[in-house]
Design a binder for these strands. Structure first.
Lengths: 361, 361
DNA sequence: TTGAAAGCGCTAACAT
DNA sequence: ATGTTAGCGCTTTCAA
């Protein structure tokens, strides 16, 4: 690799001048500047950011840890972050925790070695502990919250879940099942709470027997839905609210397998929109989340934090006794949107003794 | 951040000894080693990889550029690469070209500053030129090939397309349409060629009027399919072979919009399996590709290359006149697999004057 | 077995 | 406006 020394030599200047010509052009005589730029072009010079970062004490690098890059929601969120980081002149390094606190810990350690100036994270259930290994490093939590005093960028899960539930009660459903996510992840509990509150507001009793837990995977949704939909006809829910996109796929497959027509026999509302939700048949009614914007907002906020605190994070100066107290960490929240498609309808008028025959998958 | 100096100080040794105790433990007296390790633990020391890389001249870093992280095929491939890189003790930095040669160029430049030891890339159509800006850096091309003399890891697109086409001719189809991808991307041309060859082998004439180009996006598939399926009934294809996963979504939506039943009125085969293909109704017959394994294989190969050439890429020594000639770049190829589901069936027995009425989306 | 010292490539004082 | 020099944190000779 060509070094700045090579450029300097070819342009007949010192490395200092070469460096200046490249990064503070106006500090250098026009003619010299041209020589250096030409030399750099000719040699295909690209500065070694490692050396630069080491010298400047800032890497212009961010860490990004998502829980599951194969989930389109997280992929889109990651894209929002990376695009935004680039706009601000940062690079965002992407890691995957696969929803596993152990892997998250390893990712954070690896990341720490890279000296990022800040970290964006979709925290796993173990993030509380893991994040304490990063003292002095600005962290923004995305989508969920770990309980640590970090800024968070989330969507209004409570409101989204309420809107979904209200939609179902509004159609006349009174036996509504829910497939909830892991109870140690905030999005899951918030959606569960929203579900209960909306039921209460509609005067529909909350029946714990109609609520099944899952771990966010398609298969969990499948099993939970199969379970709920196999109840005797008089107890079986006429509508299902599913807590995330993956589990919704499973729930739809379960309904299909049982020969239940959507929405005639069963209404389904999913949380988080997706290509699949739009193109399955019938298209799915969902609570959509602005995934890309979530990433953009989180990254903008983090960069803002870095800019304000002035580049070099000085963990060595814990808290200057004087000066204004640090402001409380921001809690940014984006709205969700209920998109009514064709998977929801009023409940069947009469209780059918058995599911109607249909083509079993 | 705590430096190795802090560790050394706490353990009462020189930084040299501290460094050795951490990375070459057996070179240090047991007792000293313990002191250092304990000090490191206590301080939560994490080496600054920037400084280490700068000193050692190797970063243990790889670059990975995919064309579209939102496409599950690329996401899975990226995961295969990243998991494998980690297993080998490397970190893979992920970038997105969004299928845009300009963006690819910027990604490569940014990457180059990070001093990666090798690059894995799903090349865009402009990659030939772009890759020439990386002299002396090992590159492995993934999924497609740019024409540069780099090792490539691809799937057998020709065979996959032939299997798909043979499946359709075997069912009795003689008017088979194809939606092909960009003709400057090798996967697209290979699949096109496989289609033609299989038609020929089956004695079915190739009709250019039934072939429509697209640019890999859902919308392209939609338009191309709408076009083909709007032909007069006697000319309209009874089966469609679609060149990638995104365009297949569009094609299915087009068929649905025209009220064509799958597979009764129209058979569809897609290239590349996906969650969507498995869970749409009817489940889609596809040529599946081992995306994750593709990433694994490519990364294994790249790391093997690095290990053999011994770490430090010396672009300064172009070609030692003596010694064995460099072996030709490897061309690794993985098989595809035709998965027959329920979107394919024999063609309608009689030519219907018009598409049967159905529920329009 | 350990320590002293040099140097990776770059930039920012400081000096001219 | 330009050059000289020191030093970011680390590893690795070389010497003891």
């Amino acid at each position: 690799m060509t070094r700045i020394q090579d450029v300097a030599q070819l342009a007949q200047v010192s490395t200092a001048t070469a460096s200046r010509a490249l990064s503070r052009p106006q500090q250098v005589a026009a003619e010299t500047r041209e020589r250096v730029l030409e030399a750099a072009r000719q040699l295909g010079y690209q500065p070694n950011v490692l050396a630069r970062s080491l010298r400047q004490g800032e890497t212009r690098t961010l860490g990004l840890i998502v829980a599951d890059i194969l989930n389109p929601f997280h992929a889109l969120l990651a894209k929002g972050v990376q695009d935004t980081a680039e706009r601000h002149g940062y690079s965002a390094f992407l890691f995957n925790s696969d929803e596993d606190p152990q892997k998250e810990r390893r990712a954070l350690e690896t990341l720490r070695g890279q000296q990022p100036q800040g970290v964006l994270i979709v925290p796993t259930s173990g993030a509380g502990r893991n994040l304490q290994t990063l003292p002095g490093l600005p962290v923004v939590e995305l989508d969920r919250v770990s309980g640590q005093p970090n800024p968070t960028v989330t969507v209004d899960n409570l409101d989204g879940a309420m809107a979904a539930t209200r939609h179902l009660t509004g159609l006349g459903h009174t036996r509504i099942g829910m497939v909830v996510g892991q109870q140690d992840i905030t999005t899951a509990t918030e959606r569960h709470t929203g579900f209960r509150q909306a039921l209460r507001a509609a005067g529909v009793p909350y029946d714990p027997a109609l609520v099944r837990p899952g771990h966010h995977r398609e298969d969990d949704g499948y099993r939970a839905a199969l379970d709920l939909l196999s109840l005797p006809a008089a107890e079986r829910p006429t509508a299902l609210f599913v807590g995330n996109n993956e589990m919704t796929v499973g729930a739809v497959l379960a309904a299909r397998e049982l020969g239940l027509r959507i929405p005639e026999d069963l209404s389904i509302v999913g949380f988080d929109d997706s290509r699949w939700a739009q193109t399955m048949w019938p298209p799915l009614t969902v609570v959509s989340q602005p995934a890309y914007e979530l990433g953009v907002l989180a990254c903008d906020h983090l960069v803002g934090l870095l800019t304000r605190r002035g580049g070099v994070p000085s963990a060595s100066l814990p808290l200057p006794a004087t000066g204004p107290p640090a402001p409380a960490p921001a809690r940014l929240q984006l709205p969700t949107q209920l998109i009514v498609r064709r998977s929801t309808a009023p409940p069947p008028a009469t209780i059918l003794p058995a599911p109607p025959a249909a083509d079993p998958a």
